[in-house]
Simulated assay, not measured.
Amino acid sequence: MSTITIFTDGSALGNPGPGGYGVVLLAGHHRKELSQGFRRTTNNRMELMAVCVALEALRFEGSEAVIYSDSRYVVDAVTKGWVFGWEKKGFAGKKNPDLWMRFLRAYRRHRVRFVWVKGHAQTAENNRCDSLAVAAANDSAHLIEDTGYTATADL
């Protein structure tokens, strides 16, 4: 099985405000793009949501994936091991526990490596994800509720 290359990005207009995520999955000659917009959310939630959705889209258990993200929030939390400490403490005092728990469920099903990329730079697929995320956030006819954000109010 070949390595799946994943690019992710999130956006929020107003932060909090309307938001969206964009994902590009690449495997061999296959390409899949995913995006969704939300009525009210935050940028960090959308960055993390993009990663969750990308990992959940992988069809085979134990897939090897490399995720490219411009979110220090997400990349550092995983590569520096912070999220695992947060989990041990029940995510006490941490933002977005619903998405971090969702992430860990999907993350543990695969072999995942994270790579941080500079946002709005020369990385074509990261720029494509940004375009998908912003377009989704601006698509007022198709925005859905980010129930995790609503439940946590303006944390």
Rank of each mutant, 00 (worst) to 15 (best):
V112P: 02
L25Q: 07
V51Y: 04
T150E: 14
F91V: 05
E145R: 15
A27P: 12
R72K: 10
K88Y: 05
L55T: 03
K32S: 15
S71V: 09
L143N: 10
M49F: 01
D70Y: 11
R39K: 15
R108W: 06
W86K: 01
Y73D: 04
M49R: 03
G85M: 05
R59Q: 15
D98E: 12
L58H: 14
S69F: 04
A153S: 13
K80P: 09
T8A: 13
Y68M: 13
A135P: 03
D139K: 09
L48R: 00
N127F: 06
G20E: 03
I6D: 04
N127G: 12
R72P: 00
N138P: 03
A57G: 01
Y149A: 05
V75K: 00
M1N: 05
E125V: 10
E56I: 03
T123S: 13
G22S: 04
L13C: 02
D139M: 08
G62D: 07
D146R: 02
C52S: 13
L25F: 11
P97A: 13
P16M: 07
R59F: 05
V24N: 03
R31H: 11
V83A: 02
W116H: 15
Q122F: 11
E87D: 12
F84C: 09
T79D: 10
D139I: 08
G90V: 14
Q36I: 00
Y21E: 09
T42Y: 03
W86N: 01
T123F: 11
G85S: 12
F60W: 12
V115S: 13
L99N: 01
W100K: 05
P18Y: 07
R128V: 03
G119A: 14
T79M: 06
V53M: 06
D146M: 04
A121Q: 13
A136T: 03
G62I: 04
R102V: 06
E47N: 01
G62P: 06
A106E: 15
L104A: 08
G28R: 12
G93C: 06
G10V: 01
